[in-house]
Simulated scan of single mutants.
Amino acid sequence: MTGKTPPEQEPEQETGSLLPKGEADSLLDARGLACPLPVLKARKRLMGMAPGALLEVAATDPVAIIDLPHFCAEAGHEFLGKKSDGPVTYYLIRRGAQT
């Protein structure tokens, strides 16, 4: 057993997180996943969330800095910002209206 949290599970609040614990409606752990998986997993998670809900994504993939904001613009979600904490960058996304 590696001791790593599987990406499907929501991790505990991280030090560099954008929001206090419990403020985001969902937290997606995409650490260790390479492009395009952080975006694909965020897309899947957002599909199951209500419009206006907040998703925080924790990712280590350097390309996610480009991919996640672009995905949000294309899919109608609001990219609210990012914050880096060492190798992990936290992204905050507000779910757009149902299409």
Rank of each mutant, 00 (worst) to 15 (best):
F79R: 01
A42R: 08
I93H: 07
A97H: 10
V39P: 02
D25N: 09
A42F: 02
E56W: 15
K83V: 11
P11G: 12
L55N: 04
E14C: 07
I65E: 10
L40Y: 11
E12V: 07
M47W: 08
M47G: 07
I65W: 10
K21M: 12
P38L: 00
L33Q: 04
A24K: 01
P6W: 06
E23T: 14
D61W: 04
K82F: 12
I65P: 01
Q9I: 05
P87H: 08
A75F: 15
E56G: 03
H77R: 12
M1E: 00
L46F: 12
A64E: 06
L80A: 10
G86Y: 09
P69E: 05
D67P: 01
E78M: 07
Q9V: 03
P20I: 13
P36G: 02
P7S: 12
K44N: 03
T15Q: 03
G96I: 11
P51R: 06
G96F: 13
L55S: 01
I93R: 11
A58Q: 07
V63T: 12
E78G: 12
E10W: 04
V57W: 06
S26N: 03
H77E: 02
Q9K: 10
A73G: 09
D67C: 15
R43A: 14
G81W: 14
G52N: 07
G22D: 10
I93T: 04
A97S: 15
L55Q: 04
G96L: 07
R43P: 00
L28M: 03
A24G: 11
L37A: 15
R95F: 13
L27N: 00
K44I: 01
K83G: 11
A64C: 12
E74M: 14
A64I: 06
H77V: 01
M49F: 06
G76N: 14
G32M: 00
T5D: 12
A50G: 03
T99R: 11
Q13Y: 05
T89W: 06
D61E: 07
M49I: 01
A58V: 15
E56H: 08
V39L: 11
F79Q: 01
K41F: 15
R95H: 09
L68R: 06
L40M: 15
G48Y: 06
P7T: 12
I93G: 02
L54K: 12
L55H: 08
P11L: 08
I66K: 14
A58S: 13
D25Q: 06
K83H: 12
G76H: 15
A58H: 13
G16P: 02
A34C: 07
